[in-house]
């Protein structure tokens, strides 16, 4: 049963009773929250996701709630918690849905050490995974959103999960997080996107999320073989330049972009090395999304 088959009232009821359980890629996530806006966020962006039954194993028990009764009404705030642990300081109440996305990123990045977790967007076409590692502001999510709007399968806009067992990339297709100018850039790029409400004045500025395609969600447990490793950099008015990068340098850059390279130790080095062996490596400068999408379509052909 998909979340979209539930009414708003039913979603709010499930959230209130700690029984909203969603299958997100290979993870089962339970979310509880008394905040109605969270239900709206989920219905808008997670409609294609399966609701899992009460007996299913849950990877992450999460909740979004006010830190105290006072903070529900006076300068209202929200806390994200995982198994009762509160990893972040509270945020303004209006940022609850964005906090869910950030909190879930934290859960996955910190508790999924059967994967090498790379801070990278990843999309797939013709059975080839294109991995875009990048620091905030590099334009990886914008590029990822443009490719996802152009028929590429979304595996993740934020975290590439590389299995240490088989070297394949496992999806966790969730809403694509966009910030500030990228919101308008993607709205102008495609008229077919569904975007959730934009949350303003967060620590990252204005933040909005694009709904992943139903196909990407349906293929949420189907891994992809890594093929290209591309380090993007958005540079205003730049040409579209794809520059080959030596594999050794690519390895160091990937290691810097991993959440758990040091935790995995020698296994992390082996996983990164195998990824580098399997991938063509590039640096990529761009300012025009249309040109970028055309170039990658050609590369995946």
């Amino acid at each position: 049963m998909k979340l979209a088959t539930l009414s708003r009232k039913e979603v709010i009821h499930s959230l209130n009773r700690k029984r909203l359980r969603l299958k997100i890629g290979g993870f089962n996530v339970c979310l509880s929250s008394p905040i109605p806006e969270v239900a709206d966020h989920l219905l808008c962006l997670y409609g294609a996701f399966e609701v899992v039954d009460d007996e299913a194993f849950i990877d992450f028990y999460t909740s979004l709630a006010s830190p105290s009764k006072v903070r529900r009404y006076f300068r209202a705030q929200v806390n994200f918690s995982f198994d009762g642990y509160v990893p972040f300081k509270p945020l303004p109440y209006k940022q609850a849905s964005a906090m869910f996305e950030w909190g879930l990123n934290w859960c996955i990045a910190n508790h999924s050490h059967h994967y090498l977790v790379i801070h990278a967007a990843v999309v797939e076409r013709n059975s080839q995974a294109f991995i875009f590692p990048g620091t905030p502001g590099s334009g990886k999510s914008t590029l990822c959103a443009a490719l996802a709007c152009s028929g590429w399968r979304l595996l993740s806009d934020e975290m590439t999960l590389l299995s240490v067992a088989d070297g394949l990339v496992y999806p966790v297709p969730r809403p694509i997080s966009l910030k500030n100018r990228s919101l308008d850039v993607i709205r102008n790029f495609s008229s077919n996107i569904i975007m959730g409400p934009v949350v303003k004045d967060t620590a990252k500025g204005a933040v909005g999320h694009v709904r992943p395609s139903d196909e990407s969600v349906d293929l949420g447990e189907v891994p992809a073989k890594p093929a290209k490793l591309i380090f993007p950099k958005y540079l205003e008015n730049s040409n579209t330049d794809l520059i080959p990068l030596s594999k050794s340098r690519a390895l160091l850059k990937i290691a810097e972009n991993c959440f758990n390279y040091n935790i995995l130790g020698v296994q992390g080095f082996k996983s990164v090395s195998d990824l580098i062996d399997a991938s063509d490596c590039y640096e990529f400068n761009y300012s025009c999304l249309e040109e970028a999408v055309a170039l990658f379509a050609e590369l995946a052909h």
């Binding site: 030596s246 594999k247 050794s248 340098r249 390895l251 160091l252 040091n262 130790g265 020698v266 080095f269 082996k270 090395s273 580098i276």
Partner: peptide
């Protein structure tokens, strides 16, 4: 652990990480 590509090499030291 050493891995070689072209005329470059990446070395991982398990003791120091």
């Amino acid at each position: 652990r050493c891995r070689f590509w072209d005329d470059e090499c990446v070395i991982y030291n398990q003791f120091t990480g």
